[in-house]
Computed example of a mutant assay.
Amino acid sequence: MTPPGRPAKKYANPSFRLTALLLGVLGLLLLASAPGQPDPEQAFGRGGIGLAALLHAVRPARLAVIPTPEGIVVRNLLSTRTVPRDRIRGFSLVRILDIELLDGTTVTCSAIQRGASHPANGCTARALADLNARLAEHTPATAPRTAA
């Protein structure tokens, strides 16, 4: 999967990085301007909106899907989960990337979403193809059955 000493590939939608940056800058500007307001209500409003913008900047910065030798690390907004490689059947993408498990359940990965980036970019399709290829590399081939 990933050679020792080399960081794991992290799949995240590139448009999310720009969103996080813009929300973070907006939040900092609003928070910095709040104390200088002559009206306490306006200062409180700017501070509240600035804090909300900073909190929302964390979401896109956190989301990621990271393949490791042990499995797939899924970082969603409120949770991080490692799905062992031997439990994964495959990956599918309808609206959001789903990891299909052998027991029939799925794990949703918010980091990779259809239509969340510019269509010409193709990052969503490339991530899905790469994840399926990486899974195929580590899935043992079954011996062909011979008729008796």
Rank of each mutant, 00 (worst) to 15 (best):
L131W: 14
L128N: 04
T142S: 05
A32Q: 12
I96Y: 11
L77K: 13
A34L: 06
A143M: 09
I112C: 02
S92E: 11
A53Y: 02
P40G: 02
L131P: 01
R6N: 15
R145N: 15
P60Y: 04
A12Q: 08
P60V: 02
E100M: 10
R17P: 02
V94S: 10
I88T: 12
L97S: 08
A61E: 03
A136I: 05
T19K: 07
S15Y: 00
P144C: 01
K9L: 03
P4Y: 11
A53F: 01
F44L: 12
L31V: 04
N13D: 00
R6G: 15
L63G: 04
L22E: 08
T146R: 11
G122P: 00
S110T: 09
L23N: 15
T139V: 11
F16S: 10
A34C: 00
H138F: 15
A136Y: 09
A148P: 14
L51F: 05
V58Q: 06
H118S: 12
A127C: 09
T146L: 06
A141R: 15
R17H: 11
A133E: 06
A34F: 05
I99P: 05
A127S: 07
A148S: 10
S15K: 07
T82D: 02
P144T: 13
A61S: 09
A57Y: 02
A52D: 06
T105A: 13
D103F: 01
T108D: 12
T82V: 08
G5H: 15
H138P: 10
P67A: 07
P60C: 00
A120S: 07
M1I: 05
L55I: 00
A34E: 02
V107P: 03
N121T: 09
R95E: 12
V94K: 14
R145T: 12
G27D: 12
R89T: 13
V25M: 03
V83D: 03
D86Q: 12
I96P: 04
L128T: 04
G104H: 07
A133M: 09
A20E: 07
N13Q: 02
H56L: 07
I112G: 04
A127G: 00
V65G: 04
T2C: 02
E70N: 13
I88D: 01
A57R: 12
A141W: 14
R95H: 14
Y11P: 03
E41R: 15
P119W: 01
I49E: 15
P40F: 03
N76F: 05
L30I: 01
N121D: 11
A61W: 00
D39S: 11
G90H: 11
E41C: 08
N13L: 00
R6S: 13
F44C: 04
